[in-house]
Design a protein around this nucleic acid. Structure first.
Length: 558
RNA sequence: GUGCCUGUAGCUCAGCGGAUAGAGCGCUUGCCUACGGAGCAAGAUGUCGGGGGUUCGAAUCCCUCCAGGCACGCCA
């Protein structure tokens, strides 16, 4: 397009002006065209001609391309394109040749990306909200891989601090209870049943030898077992992290304090009992309680509502300081692209980290954050709510047991990260046609079925003449080849749910066609059957690719 | 109260400043002796939360109001 406009300008058909970005995209209504561009209307003012006339000029200057059929002007000035049918039919061979790398792109070739996701502290089993982050993170990682990046999946965790101490103390109580002792759970301890499970395992391993032990060994044992659980749950969903990054290492290598020092040198740190913008009442209260100095981050200088404490009066850093140090660490590791998947409940916290990076002279836009909204679980129409601490959360393992890993992945993926997910267990448990997972997977199963039949009959697709394919097949191919632009869009918008919608649309085109385009039928001549079989080999590749991109299985039978 | 997210068909949700706003489920009416019926065909269904504005053009961008969610700790 760009070329055509330049060419038209060079030929004097259009006046000189700076050419804006040209969008070519499928129209809402596929009846109009395969691809269309409203560029002539955009140019109306710049070129001082009616859009329809501009469109006609551009069309005259369009370069030839093997895949394009005729371009035409329509409506108020749209330029419409059709893909050529011959070219589409030949794409069957391309699709088969590309196989599992179908529509792989080179956008990220030679570049490294890191995706940080899940990052749950090992205080309890993986629950559904974190699982949403797991699915989004792993799916965007798969998109990045598809467009050429080398991707590292990272999990950041903290196994020190007050929460982990509470975990150790809680397990200690459960352990003593398992030994028949009357030990109350600590206040604000972890009350979930799962710790009783951990305690039972501990008793099985050490008997009553730890009866007099303090909380630290209990913490370590709980951490070990819970991490095993979390990793196992993730693995069931096809999620595997390359790096588990321990917050503690940032203390060990001194980078936590170095980060504070760096901020201080840049004038972003001050020591005070209350922040500079505190109200009279807050000051009076602090003075009355004799509060000592804390180290404050002057984040208000970067647009924050209030300054944030980085080091408490006790001398301990808050969670925020190591978090900034961690992101500095990531910035320094030389990735070309950093992605961070967070739940909405961490959205505010993240902004402080972003300002920390900014204060240290980093460009915070190098770090792309996907913030996803909450998952609400319903059973029997009733909302199930709770916290890890209270222990009434459903571990995702139970959900996987009920509906299967593929369904969990699909349901958590097939929504924009910006919207809440209503996960209705009753609905998801019902394995009927309300579940789009089966609709998509069935497309793959049906392709596999054709090849089972072909094998039985000793029929091969070798030497197929693809020109015998018909209009339903080219319609399907037209859709399938949009995978490439779907990947680009998912990448640009950091919106992996696009893949889920694309897969459903593709299956939606497949099933009606399958009914009409039979391979083994008395009225289908052998050479047509051969071409169609070849076509279904490509279709099978398409669905395998789509399901794999979503981290789902591509079964041959269900 | 402040910040972020959301409001689109009966329900769950897509929708990238462009043409007649879409899909799944549900609903209505049909179809099936064929590679897996977890199927197929046809149909009905909309004040895009309300109101202003910008634009040749707004569900999309801006302002405002209403409604819901999340976050606002010297917790992590």
């Amino acid at each position: 397009m760009h070329e055509a406009i330049e060419h038209a300008q060079a030929a004097g058909d259009l006046p000189l002006f700076e050419i804006p970005e040209v969008r070519v995209q499928p129209p809402n209504n596929p009846g109009f065209a395969d691809y269309a561009t409203p560029v002539a209307m955009q140019l109306g003012r710049l070129a001082r001609k009616p859009p329809a006339e501009i469109a006609a000029i551009i069309v005259r200057h369009l370069p030839d391309a093997p895949f394009a059929g005729a371009a035409e002007v329509a409506g108020p000035g749209f330029i419409n394109f059709r893909l050529s049918d011959d070219w589409l039919k030949q794409q069957v061979e391309t699709i088969i040749a590309e196989g599992d790398d179908l529509c792989a792109l080179q956008i990220g070739a030679g570049k490294r990306a890191q995706v940080e996701f899940v990052s749950a502290n090992p205080t309890g089993p993986l629950h559904i909200g974190r699982t949403r982050g797991a699915v989004i993170g792993d799916s965007i990682a798969r998109v990045l891989e598809a467009v050429g990046y080398r991707v590292e999946r990272e999990y950041y965790f903290n196994n020190a601090g007050r929460q982990m101490e509470m975990l150790g103390r809680s397990l200690r109580a459960r352990y003593l209870q398992a030994l028949g002792q009357d030990a109350p759970l600590p206040e604000e301890g972890y009350a979930g049943e799962y710790l009783a499970e951990v305690a039972a395992r501990l008793v099985a391993e050490v008997g009553d030898a730890w009866r007099e032990a303090d909380w630290p060994p209990f913490k370590e044992f709980a951490e070990k077992v819970i991490f095993e659980w979390i990793r196992a749950s993730l693995l069931r969903l096809g999620v595997r992290h390359d790096v588990f990054f321990n917050e503690n290492s940032l203390y060990e290598d001194g980078s936590v304090w170095r980060t504070l020092e760096a901020l201080r040198q840049r004038g972003y740190i001050y020591d005070a009992p209350v922040w500079e913008g505190a109200s009279e009442a807050e000051r009076a209260q602090a003075a009355a309680s004799g509060a000592a100095n804390a180290a404050w981050f002057r984040s208000t200088a970067l647009g924050d509502e209030k300054d944030r404490v980085l080091v408490k009066a006790s001398g301990e850093p808050t969670y925020t300081l190591p978090d900034i140090a961690y992101h500095v660490n990531k910035m320094e590791r030389g990735f070309d692209l950093l992605v961070n998947v967070l739940g909405a409940d961490h959205g505010t916290q993240y902004k402080v980290v972003q300002r920390g990076l900014q204060a240290l002279g980093y460009d915070p836009s190098r770090l792309h954050v996907i913030i996803h909204q909450m998952v609400r679980i319903y059973r029997g129409g009733a909302l199930i709510k709770g916290s890890t601490r209270a222990g009434d959360v459903i571990p995702v393992d139970a959900v996987i047991d009920e509906v299967g890993a593929d369904s969990v992945r699909y349901f958590l993926l097939a929504r924009s990260a910006n919207t809440d997910v209503e996960f209705d267990l009753d609905l998801a448990v019902a394995q009927n046609n309300e579940n789009p997972v089966y609709y998509i997977q069935n497309a793959h199963v049906r392709c596999a079925g054709i090849f089972r039949m072909a094998e039985q009959r000793g029929f091969s697709d070798a030497g197929a003449d693809l020109s015998l394919l018909g209009e339903p097949e080219t319609t399907f191919l037209r859709q399938a080849l949009r995978l490439g632009e779907t990947l680009i869009y998912a990448l640009e918008e950091m919106a992996p749910h696009q893949i889920a919608f694309f897969a459903l649309e593709t299956a939606r085109l497949f099933h009606p066609m399958y009914d009409n385009v039979r391979v083994f039928h008395s009225e289908v001549p052998e050479d047509v059957a051969r071409a169609r079989l070849r076509f279904y080999r490509a279709a099978k590749v398409v669905f395998k690719r789509l399901l794999t991109l979503m981290g789902m299985s591509a079964p041959d039978v269900m």
